[in-house]
């Protein structure tokens, strides 16, 4: 069943001569693990941020769970965002708060503001946060300051923060771009495992084609803000990308690092 749909989605940043995203028609089904690939500047990040409206798209329509969400504002928009987890490249944790507090932050849209502002969390919520941390191999870290953790651990905390939302969809914007290759693989494995266990749909931006081929069920290719590829991973190979982009994306990315 379709969970998310975009119709003619477009985004032009104010003052920019070219649109960052041009009429993208896309549909994601429940439980799919979809990689969004393309060179930097292809519009991957803009696309993901339009989906939970961290950026407001300038054209087209958005549908989530069959309902149009294009022009949501205020309370309804907040409510939409509570059902969508977002994982950032730089983790976006509050480094001065504890790991546990950072995980609980995921519930801020779903619990009474007065209660959370006073720092009061139900036993059930705290237990769930602990359970998620244990599941991601961070049980000993819950009381540490978040900025005391390694990059891979911090990204797992941000995954736990997304999971505690009980989301239908997780958007992950280059979640492993700041991590070394072994850690990147470990984090992606964890993300894929929990997503499959919970039946969560994942859209993940990756600029490493090999990672996309290894983990994704389906691959969406963007170039200059236009959708140029949308096929199951089984129909995709590195050579399809050399064809689309006119160069070997993998080698290019490795050269840059």
């Amino acid at each position: 069943m379709s969970l998310l749909k975009t119709v003619g989605l477009g985004m032009t940043y104010s003052g920019a001569p070219q649109p960052a995203l041009t009429s993208v028609n896309f549909e994601a089904n429940e439980g799919e693990f979809i990689a969004v690939v393309g060179p930097s500047g292809a519009g991957k990040s803009t696309f993901l941020r339009c989906l939970n409206q961290l950026i407001t798209p300038t054209e087209g329509q958005l549908f989530f769970e069959g309902e149009e969400t294009t022009h949501l504002k205020g309370e309804p928009l907040r409510h939409l965002r509570t059902r969508i987890g977002f994982i950032f490249q730089d983790y976006n944790l509050q480094g001065r708060l504890s790991v546990l507090q950072n995980v609980l932050t995921g519930l801020l849209g779903q619990r009474p503001a007065l209660q959370t502002t006073l720092g009061i969390w139900s036993k059930k919520d705290v237990e769930k946060a602990h359970w998620l941390l244990r599941d991601l191999g961070l049980s000993d870290q819950s009381q540490k300051r978040a900025d005391a953790l390694s990059g891979g651990q911090q990204q797992r905390v941000s995954i736990a923060r997304a999971l505690i939302q009980s989301p239908r969809l997780i958007l992950a914007d280059e979640p492993v771009a700041s991590l070394d290759p072994p850690t990147a693989h470990a984090v992606l494995k964890d993300l894929k495992r929990v997503a499959k266990e919970e039946g969560i749909t994942v859209l993940i931006n990756l600029h490493h084609i090999d990672l996309a081929l290894e983990y994704a069920d389906r691959i969406l290719g963007l170039r200059d803000g236009v959708k140029v590829w949308d096929q199951p991973t089984s129909e995709t190979s590195e050579s399809s990308f050399t064809e689309i982009y006119g160069r070997n994306l993998k080698a290019d990315d490795l050269a840059k690092e």
């Binding site: 939970n52 961290l54 965002r81 969508i84 950032f88 976006n92 932050t105 995921g106 801020l108 849209g109």
Partner: peptide, 9 residues
Amino acid sequence: EAVVAVGGR
């Protein structure tokens, strides 16, 4: 930005 993304006030 992360708190905005989880629907925080």
